[in-house]
Design a protein around this nucleic acid. Structure first.
Lengths: 213, 213
DNA sequence: CGTCAATTGATAGCGACTCTCAAAAGAATG
DNA sequence: CATTCTTTTGAGAGTCGCTATCAATTGACG
């Protein structure tokens, strides 16, 4: 009866052999277990109707552990892992390129990768549905977006010889990210089969044309 | 010692004399008392460090009553009272006027009124500072802004023969209101003495120029 | 003044989240 | 393998926002 090897780590599938200690491996494992349990329960009973205690039970950990891994219930759903990647990409764009073009390129690269991986895409759709439906999650998503905006805005500012908190920079990034968010919401609820990137590009173009002050 | 008349309603300043019954008068009175107590405590101890129970005590009502008047703690700070007014104003704008121009006119009218009244202006500044500093309030403000956006977006859509949930309309209003919000934040934290309306106009112009796709 | 309806306060309870502390388990050492 | 050391975990109590219930109070009205 040595068979709980459903997820036993025969050999680490990461490049380097026994790179990470058992501890590290268990941590990612727990983290994933909690996330998976949460998504399962959210899908079945809804976000608000799913207490953290139930998630803990489902994931076979204590409630304290859940909060140790995710500071808030919303954090179980959200993830900021793309921010740094996007920042790096943006920094790698050529000097003279117009900001919006750079941003679009970065988006195409990073978002494209997510959308092309079926698993990641499915998870993203689920997440964005929660963003659409649950106020507290939407709020956090907004907040996180606005943080990403400030991060990338800072990089753009540096490239155009401005400071990150100049009105121009802030207005620009706020508008762009707000448009991206709106396009994403539209995508999730109205056109899930279309290409999100096309929608975003279209939206940015709408923005550019429609504003005749 | 009959002197808590800082805001005692000597005679109803609304046109009609003892128009409302005692009940109604007491209600507005309680509402204001709670708000005032809250703002006082927030200013002194900070938002998060001020439990609703303390606000209730300070306002001399029970905690239940506080929640009866304000569904959430954030609602004590926020107010949606301008939305309908703005909607009416927007509907009154001439048919052919470009959407953004109409919106700017409405803003100038409604925001202008608030900014010109010293008391209202002071309250707005305090509120926006809380919006800047307290995540949960910022979240609600965002949400409320996005609702206003949908409301006004619907009106604009009707005027331009589109539906309220068309991508174009949503993107347009999302961008505009996001810019307004950003300009307001800039105003509160960087240029409280400048004219907010000028900042907003400048921001909308920035938006229009800066986006070279 | 007495009746009726609205407003209030007290109480109990849920759920998110924090803090603390002792038990459990991996890592490092002999 | 046994030993310490360190990290991770779980259990418990407590705070705060918020809801629901119900009895007591209070303005409205004939």
């Amino acid at each position: 009866m040595p068979d709980n090897d459903v997820m036993s780590p025969r050999t680490p599938d990461t490049g380097c052999p026994p790179r990470a200690g058992l501890r590290e491996r268990k941590k990612v494992q727990t983290r994933q277990a909690i996330r998976a349990a949460a998504y399962r329960l959210f899908a079945e009973h809804g976000y608000d109707a799913t207490p953290v205690d139930r998630i803990a039970a489902e994931a076979d950990v204590s409630p304290s552990t859940v909060f140790r891994y995710f500071p808030t219930k919303e954090d179980i759903v959200l993830t900021d892992e793309y921010d740094d990647m996007m920042a790096d990409m943006l920094r790698d764009r050529p000097e003279g390129e117009p900001p919006l073009v750079s941003l679009r390129m970065v988006l195409h690269e990073s978002l494209g990768a997510v959308l092309n991986d079926p698993a990641e895409r499915a998870e993203m759709v689920q997440r964005e549905k929660l963003v659409r439906d649950v106020p507290s999650i939407r709020a956090r998503a907004h907040e996180s977006m606005s943080l990403t905006g400030r991060l990338l805005g800072g990089i753009i500012a540096a490239r155009t010889g401005r400071t990150a908190d100049a009105l121009e920079v802030r207005v620009f990034t706020a508008a762009v990210f707000s448009v991206i968010h709106e396009a994403t919401m539209f995508w999730v609820e109205k056109a899930p089969d279309e290409d999100l990137l096309v929608l975003i590009d279209r939206s940015l173009r709408i923005l550019n044309r429609g504003l005749d002050v």
